[in-house]
Simulated scan of single mutants.
Amino acid sequence: MFAHLDVESSKIQLQKRTPYNGTNRENFLSLLVDEFLNTTSKDAKCQVLANLANFAYDPINYVYIRDVGVLDIFLYVVKNETENKLLHFATAGICNLCLDPLNAEYILKHLGLTPLTALLNCKSTVIEANILTILLNLYNEQTKLELQSDEIKQIILDHSMSEDKMVSNLAKIYLNDIFKLNNQL
């Protein structure tokens, strides 16, 4: 009950901050989705995806993000793109959105773990860090077997020795939380 009041209060605050003739968030996100879908420029796609990922930081946008298809764009990029800039922004968006149980369920239903775990070896530390964070947040009874596989364990062990501290620390958290390898690193 209290969470609902907080969301409603936040929506009221957003309405107060939106100029009278201003575009509301849902409309703005919808315009960004249209731009992403209709542009042929890779640079424009990257810019739009970066903007969409920025909106994923704020939980008040989660409903709008689902409603206008932003989450679907992130999932599409992870499944179909190889461009690191696009993957960076898509995984950053997913990383922020997967904290919400409805978004997590949607991600698992429409993307699954395979495209995500495939990115663990993408050679971009930012993307790898995003993926490690996503997998930590998506870990549950449903995903347990896949996220505790020997193959994933070896990749995570390798990442725990990364020179990149962010990747190394996230991998150690994964090993500790998922594989229960306390103090064995």
Rank of each mutant, 00 (worst) to 15 (best):
H4W: 07
V70G: 08
L116P: 03
K109D: 11
F36E: 00
N27D: 15
I60Y: 00
L132H: 09
N38I: 01
C46D: 04
L14Y: 12
K42A: 09
L111G: 07
T114K: 15
T117S: 14
D67F: 05
L120M: 14
L116Y: 05
K45I: 01
F2A: 13
M1V: 11
K16G: 00
S9D: 11
K180T: 03
E83S: 07
T125C: 10
S30Y: 07
G22F: 03
N140D: 15
L170S: 02
Y57I: 02
V126H: 12
D6G: 00
L132W: 01
Q148Y: 02
L108N: 08
A90V: 02
K109C: 06
T114M: 09
I127V: 13
M166F: 04
A53N: 04
L108E: 07
L116H: 06
M1D: 11
L49N: 01
L97I: 09
K172Q: 14
K85C: 02
L145G: 06
H4R: 11
V167L: 06
I60T: 04
G112S: 10
C95R: 10
I107Q: 04
V70I: 10
L135S: 03
K180Q: 10
L113D: 07
I73F: 04
H110I: 02
I156R: 00
K165I: 08
D67M: 09
Q13V: 12
E8Y: 08
N182G: 05
N61C: 14
K42E: 12
D72L: 05
I134Y: 00
T23P: 00
D177W: 01
I127A: 08
L52H: 05
L52E: 07
F28P: 00
L113G: 08
Q184N: 07
F2P: 01
F74I: 01
G22P: 03
V63N: 09
N51L: 13
L185H: 10
N24W: 05
H4K: 12
S9W: 02
N137F: 08
